[in-house]
């Protein structure tokens, strides 16, 4: 029984992590937009889902205060979460438009992430401050618990399937090539007539939508969401999956998510518990994450499954290609 529950949790986490990593890969790996504030779009999706599905804040004894509370059905709330992610992603994108060095922009994004978390935690009326939102209704609450859990896994799987199909529209084909051109040399892409600024904002919107959907699904599953779930270093966890797996490659980052989120981070749970330090496995998880990122940047920056560079057929000529 416990195994079954554990498997459900792992599958849901894998699904939501995949959606988020695909979004971040679209932004960073494929398009070269260093969005280190990515976790904010995930949080935006989660909070929007919560305020859409919860009732008015005075309900449940009024122990939490927040805006919204529309008691909308599950699919609508999911869409709202994705939309919120897109909007917030675009806003973040606007702040990153000024052409600064990439590392400056990265630090600015980290600060934005930290600032949003601070403001949301401090303002108790907006989204219930640092306590976060709880008692988010589960859409399958009426069913038998085991069926409800697997039904949720099914929903996550469906979202991943649809999400992947949408993703491929952006990472392959003409749009994909344009984005990669923008990543590799945006001046050249601009000179070739591509609207670099527009593309960046579109990518941040789509990437944000993926993140928002991920957050919404997660909030629905856990039933709660608080600022501790989206500290600014969580973006590093997703970034680690992207770098380890293979930046710019959808298969690569999917494998990276499997390696990092499932094998490593879940694997440390099985280390023998040291009774004096109960939080050790989580700390160890972060240490492993940071170490893997640095090891890969040092030894294999292209990742486990590197992005496949397109090969174009050469025109046949009398000389053999040399």
């Amino acid at each position: 029984m416990a195994w079954e529950y554990y498997l459900v949790v792992m599958l849901v986490y894998l699904g939501t992590d995949l959606l988020a990593v695909w979004g971040l890969n679209l932004e960073f790996g494929v398009s070269g937009v260093a969005n280190l504030a990515y976790i904010v779009v995930v949080a935006a999706g989660a909070y929007t889902f919560a305020i859409c599905t919860l009732g008015p804040s005075s309900g449940n004894g009024g122990f939490q205060t927040y805006i919204g509370g529309f008691t909308l059905p599950f699919p609508v709330a999911l869409l709202a979460g994705a939309l919120a992610g897109a909007v917030v992603g675009t806003l973040i994108g606007v702040t990153g438009l000024k052409r600064l060095r990439q590392d400056y922009q990265a630090v600015a994004m980290l600060v934005v992430s930290l600032m949003v978390a601070t403001v949301v935690s401090a303002d108790t009326g907006f989204l219930n401050g640092s306590a976060g939102l709880a008692l988010i209704p589960n859409p399958f609450a009426d069913l038998d618990p085991e069926v409800a859990r697997w039904a949720y896994v099914g929903v996550v799987a469906l979202c991943c399937l649809i999400g992947f199909l949408v993703l491929r529209r952006f990472t392959t084909g003409p749009i994909g090539r344009t984005l990669r051109a923008m990543r590799d040399d945006d001046t050249a892409a601009s000179a070739a007539g591509k609207n670099v600024i527009g593309l960046r904002l579109v990518v941040q919107a789509v990437g944000g939508a993926f993140g928002g959907l991920s957050g919404a699904l997660l909030a629905g599953f856990i039933g709660g969401w608080s600022p501790s779930a989206w500290v600014y270093i969580e973006t590093l966890a997703f970034l680690s999956c992207v770098i380890v797996g293979g930046m710019g490659s959808d298969r690569g980052v999917s494998l990276g998510t499997l390696i990092i989120a499932v094998l490593l981070l879940q694997g440390v749970q099985f280390l023998p518990q040291i009774s004096s330090s109960p939080g050790l496995s989580e700390d160890f998880g972060w240490i492993i994450l940071g170490t893997s990122t640095i090891i890969f940047i040092w030894f294999r920056p292209q990742g486990v499954l590197p992005e496949r560079r397109p090969r174009y057929l050469r025109k046949s000529s009398s000389q053999s290609p040399g």
Binding site: I233, L236, L289
Partner: peptide, 19 residues
């Protein structure tokens, strides 16, 4: 190594040291 990768490295190192 690109500047953005250096930031990622220093952030990761910071996380490792902190934990």
């Amino acid at each position: 190594t690109r500047a953005i990768a250096m930031v990622i490295v220093t952030v990761s190192a910071g996380i490792i040291l902190q934990y």
